[in-house]
Nucleic acid binder design. Structure first.
Lengths: 365, 365
DNA sequence: CTGGACAGCGAAAACGTTTTCGTGTTGAAA
DNA sequence: TTTCAACACGAAAACGTTTTCGCTGTCCAG
């Protein structure tokens, strides 16, 4: 491919057959058309410097051979990659998948690519992966911190990267210690709404099935649960609150929990817990929603298809992803100016009423 | 940042405060230490050309300021990005999420990154996104073709890209017209196993709830269903087969279908359909598994949590993703030699027995 | 002394772009 | 005829690496 290509067909052939990829480059076009590289570049950018003739010739050639500029070279030159890194704890997870989906759509529309990294909830992998990406591969991060990271409370890697000048947008599992743009849902208020709704239905003994407290969202939802109860002058009973560490064994824990406690309402921080709760209740001979009303966070696949379908607090993950992407790209494209002012966007939750909740208050006719 | 940095602390400060990212580069180290760029590069690579003294000095400096080479520059030089592009129809989808998860793990272990693109089942987006990535951003593709693409039967973009020398691995929704490595599950055999299992339980009238035929996997699973019946000399009844186009309205379709037909077994090509089927059966007063046994493809979140939990054909998505990534990376790192021999790996399905199936054959004591 | 071996380092090309700053050739105005 | 702008184009630097090659000096064997 280094000899001068004597005519069109030669290029076509070698272009198609060669096992290696002799991607068409400016240099090759230049050599072929007996002009300089600069001329080719300018012509393809419709520069007025180049005569109409030459421009047409070059553009025709480029089009014919489907020339496309090399992204890596562009990235090096512009010192931007038009790629954003998204780091999440797991991907086999309805909520995170929707977030990615939303972020990808926005990124795509605005001409960016998404490179994903899974931290698998491990601190080390989060650190290593970010360090790797931060070295030129991407222009900015969208991130939800790993469980282990929240547990450790060590956010040096984030702060480091931000200090180096790389924009970061945190979402969902955010941390106060880090100063950057954030997108969250109002977990507290969402939980509050849900529990208030249960109270409104006439529930007197509402169980909370949550995760351990070092997960920020678990903590916040727990707070919302308590707030709702207190607002109605209802007591928060410790034994009506179950905190689950290991999601794998959650079913058994939930079953035992329900065996020991009488409840007429359940608020679960995710679909899985809600499903297990309903199963547990069924074993006790309790029906949902007739005997017990159940609400779950996360409006996922289970909620829609379960029997009964689940009333849920929808987190609008796609919206979060979209918002996060927009925030990041806005900052990337902002012309490097005034004091950075960080914003925290709150995505509203909405209560989606389905079959798992039913009023206990019978209005006499 | 362009003046010579007079001492260490100066660099630290400007390094931390500057809004732009003055990433430490070989050139800066060279200037600072009064050596040439080549010397720095060699020293950091522990080249024997450089004296022990200079090497130590340079390495100390680099370590102190946390020098890391710029990935983009490396990519340009090596003409490899160590990044692989994965294109899937959707991500809010349990199976695809597991595939990504498996691929990411392997990629990570072998030092590669994953850049994701969603085709949203659209032909155009598939083409455009691939075209974009193919221009230097990635070293190879992992892809499951969009629904619309399969419907159209137009695979020029794939063939083009492969001809240009970029390795592609297709998974799940593969196409015969394209010559490359592939990873599939044996949809036909998986379906066959499931239906045979139903037959073994004593089911006489087994319904199939599938997707339209242009989706390769739908077609194959339908084939497996028929094969299983024929093998047992059972008739394939057209009206026991439901093909669903629009997954959004699937529930209604399934309900009506079940109203019209008497069945004692259901084989659904995904969890959602199975769940809807059970709902429909319940409305007819039929219980699962007592009256009807149900098996679904896709061993997802719904199957595990549903009541009754679903007997499923597990597709081992993570394994597929891992295999695909390994195939791709193997090819990328193979030293450019002999005739390319493409392989098609088959990931075995396994039948996971849960509560939605039960034998109808009562063994007399 | 001379010659070569060798150690230690730097210059420069290359990867594929974009962009600035020439430079040579016109045609027309002075 | 000179001068000057406009026009059309090319050379070269830059982005940050790696790597080949060449250069200098030192030391030792002949």
């Amino acid at each position: 491919m280094d000899e001068k290509l004597s005519c069109f067909w030669y290029l076509t052939v070698s272009y198609k057959r060669h096992p290696m990829k002799p991607k068409l480059t400016l240099k090759q076009i230049a050599r072929e058309l007996d002009v300089s590289i600069s001329t080719v570049s300018k012509a393809l950018h419709d520069s007025m410097e180049i005569s109409e003739d030459t421009r047409q010739k070059i553009k025709a050639f480029a089009k014919y051979y489907n020339y496309m500029p090399n992204n890596i070279a562009l990235s090096l030159k512009n010192r931007k990659t038009r790629t954003i890194g998204i780091v999440i704890p797991e991907i086999v997870h309805h909520f995170f998948a929707t977030v990615i989906s939303g972020a990808e759509q926005v990124a795509n529309e605005r001409g960016y690519n998404l490179i994903i990294c899974l931290s698998n909830n491990s601190f080390d992998r989060e650190v290593v992966n970010m360090e790797l990406l931060a070295n030129g591969s991407i222009d900015g991060f969208i991130l939800s911190v790993a469980k282990e990271t929240q547990q450790k409370g060590d956010y040096h890697h984030l702060i480091e990267i931000i200090n180096r000048g790389m924009p970061v947008v945190l979402f969902d599992r955010v941390v106060d210690e880090v100063n950057c743009d954030k997108v969250i849902i109002d977990d507290k208020k969402g939980a509050q709404k849900a529990v208030s709704y249960l109270i409104g239905l006439g529930c007197k003994r509402i169980a909370l099935i949550s995760t351990v407290d070092y997960i920020s969202v678990g903590k916040l939802r727990t707070q919302g649960y308590k707030d709702a109860l207190e607002r109605e002058q209802m007591k928060v009973e410790k034994n009506l609150i179950l905190k689950i560490e290991d999601i794998e064994n959650s079913e058994r824990e939930i079953m035992e929990f329900l065996k020991k406690n009488e409840v007429d309402g359940v608020f679960a921080v995710n679909e899985q817990f809600a499903a297990s709760a309903i199963k547990g209740l069924a074993q006790k001979g309790l029906k949902v929603p007739e005997d017990v009303s159940v609400i779950a966070f996360t409006n996922g696949e289970i909620s829609k298809r379960f029997i009964p379908s689940l009333t849920t607090v929808s987190q609008h993950g796609a919206e979060m992803g979209a918002k996060a992407a927009n925030l990041l790209i806005d900052r990337l494209e902002k012309p490097e100016e005034e004091e950075e002012q960080f914003t925290t966007e709150i995505i509203k939750t909405s209560l989606i009423e389905r079959e798992s909740t039913k009023s206990k208050i019978y209005i006499s006719l």
